[in-house]
Amino acid sequence: MSDITGERAMERRLPKFIRRIDPAVATAFGCILLLLVVGSIYSTSFLSVEYLLQQLKVAAFLGVIATGMMIVILLGQIDLSVPWSVAVGGMMACAAAAFGHVGEALAIPFGILCGMAIGLANGVGVAYLRIPSMIITLATNAVAQGLMVVYTGGFSPQDSATAAMRYIATGFLVPGVPNAVIIWALIGAAAVFALTRTTFGRSVYAIGNRERAAYLSGIDTRRVVLIAFVVSGGLSAFGGVLLAGYASKAAQSMGDTYLLPSIAAVVLGGTSILGGRGSYLGTVAGVILITLLQSILSVMQMPEAGRQIIYGVVIVAMLLLYGRQRRTE
C-alpha cells in the first residue's frame, strides 16, 4: 500500500504533460531512439532523411494493417485472418484490373470490399454466434486461403497491379513524401478521430473494458463488434492493395509476414491485449519500432532464421518489460 502512495506522490512532482504520457508509449519511443543510435553506429547513412523516409514508407503498409488490428484488439478480440485478408485484397484488386477500364477503375475498392467480406464473416461469427475470435478468424483465414488457391490454381496470379495502385503505393504527391506515408497519416488521423471523438470509438473502449456493462448501458455491442471486424478486414485488404502496388503484383504468401508484426506493433505500443486500453500514438510507435528492427536486421544481413529468432525474443522481452497482466489472485 505504501508503495502505491509513494509512487503517486512521486508522480505528482512531475510536470503534468509528462504524467499524462503512457509509460508503455514512452518506452516504445525510447526503444526507437535506441535502435536509431545502434543503427547509426553501424552505418552513417542510417540517420539520413532519405533512409528515414524510406523506412516510413515501408512502415506505412504495416501501419495501415495494424490500425485495423488495433481496433479489434481494443475490443478484447483478435484478428488472425490478417495474412489472407492482405493476400485477398492484393490478389482481388489485381484480378479486377484484368477487366478493362471499368475493372481498372474499380480495382482498389473491389480489393477492399473483398477484405470487408472476410471481416463481415468474422464479425458475424464473433458478435452474433459468440464464437471466440481467435478461432473464427483462423477458420475464415483458412477458407480465404482455400478460395485463393482454387482461384489461382496454386500458382502466383498473373495479373499485375493497376497504375493507380502503383501510384498510391510508390508515387509522390507532395515532393519528397511518399504517397503511402500520406495515406497512413490520413488513415491514422481518421482512426484517432473515430476512437476518441465518436460514439463508435468510445463504445469500442467500453466493450473492451466490460462488454456486459457496455450492453447494459444501452450500447448495441454486437453491431459495434461487427463494424470493428469489417473495418479490420477492409484495412488489411487495403494494406494488401498497397503492397501489391508496391511490388506491382500480388503473391500467394504476401500476407504471411504481417500477422505477427501487426499484433506485436499494437501490443508493443501499450495497447492491452485484453482490450479497453491503448492509444493510437502507441501503435504508431510500435509500427515504427518493428519496421526499424526489421530494417536493422536486414542491413546487418542477418539470415531469415536469425531474424525470426531475434524477432520472437525481442517481442517476448518487451512484453515481459511492460505488457504483463496484473495479478488476478
Binding site: 539470415p303 525470426q308 531475434i310 524477432y311
Partner: peptide, 26 residues
C-alpha cells in the same frame, strides 16, 4: 513465459513460435 511471466498465451506463443521456427530454419 505464460504462467510465471503472466503474458497472454496468444501473443506469447505466436512470438515463441516465431523463435522456434527461426531455430528450425537455422
Amino acid at each position: 513465459i505464460v504462467i510465471y511471466g503472466r503474458l497472454q498465451p496468444i501473443v506469447a506463443t505466436i512470438a515463441t513460435g516465431a523463435a522456434y521456427f527461426g531455430i528450425a530454419l537455422l
